[in-house]
């Protein structure tokens, strides 16, 4: 978090990495357990950013915080789980089906925070800083005060999460594609 190590994977735990984080951060949102890994990752990373900027994020109006997320593999983990539920178990599960769209993570973050602002999920071939720059530029010039943005790519073998907060009237690092790429490459999350 902002260059600091805030959690470390414990290979001896029976919990997966995302559940370890949830417990480690002492969060209390039971709905977390119903979410698919993509939504869990979005929820956890947004909570982490909130915890780091408690005063400012809470002061925005509920429709002034926009969400802009993207990834490469869409909702593939849930897609495969749902396919398994009807092909192998012969019982299609509505609770899995709900997560067979990647933009559901936007809904989960919005629901957890009661945020009514703009939101966008894009499926891109790879991390594209210019996508965030252009999209955030439009949002911050059309009513949004802050943009919670990120790259959330989850497959069965890998969890790649990079979340960042852009604010109209507050800046620690200048927002441009060069800086964004540098942060992403250095995994300074």
């Amino acid at each position: 978090m902002n260059g600091k190590l805030v959690a470390q994977y414990d290979p001896s735990s029976t919990d997966g990495w995302l559940k370890q984080l949830y417990k480690g951060f002492q969060l209390n949102y039971p709905k977390f357990y119903k979410m698919d890994p993509l939504a869990q990752a979005g929820y956890l990373s947004s909570e982490l950013i909130k915890a780091n900027h408690p005063d400012r994020l809470l002061n925005y109006k509920d429709d002034a915080i926009a969400l802009v997320l993207a990834n490469r593999h869409a909702s593939v983990v849930s897609d495969l789980a749902f396919k398994n539920s009807y092909e192998i178990q012969n019982a299609p599960s509505p609770s899995l089906f709900v997560y067979t769209l990647p933009n559901i993570v936007l809904g989960e973050v919005a629901i957890a925070n009661k945020w009514y602002g703009e939101n966008m999920f894009a499926v891109l071939p790879k991390f594209a800083p210019e996508f965030y720059e252009q999209y955030a530029d439009i949002l911050l010039n059309s009513g949004s005060e802050a943009v919670l943005a990120g790259w959330l790519d989850i497959t069965d073998s890998e969890i790649e999460v990079f979340m960042f907060l852009l604010e109209k009237s507050f800046s620690e690092i200048k927002f441009n594609t060069v800086n964004l790429l540098k942060l992403a490459e250095n995994r300074v999350v």
């Binding site: 429709d63 559901i104 809904g107 919005a110 629901i111 009661k114 945020w115 009514y116 939101n119």
Partner: peptide, 20 residues
Amino acid sequence: NAADAYHQTASSPDGKGATL
């Protein structure tokens, strides 16, 4: 258009999204 920020597939009982 507006969001409800209530549930993935259900509308809120207070009609928040539609009201907005």
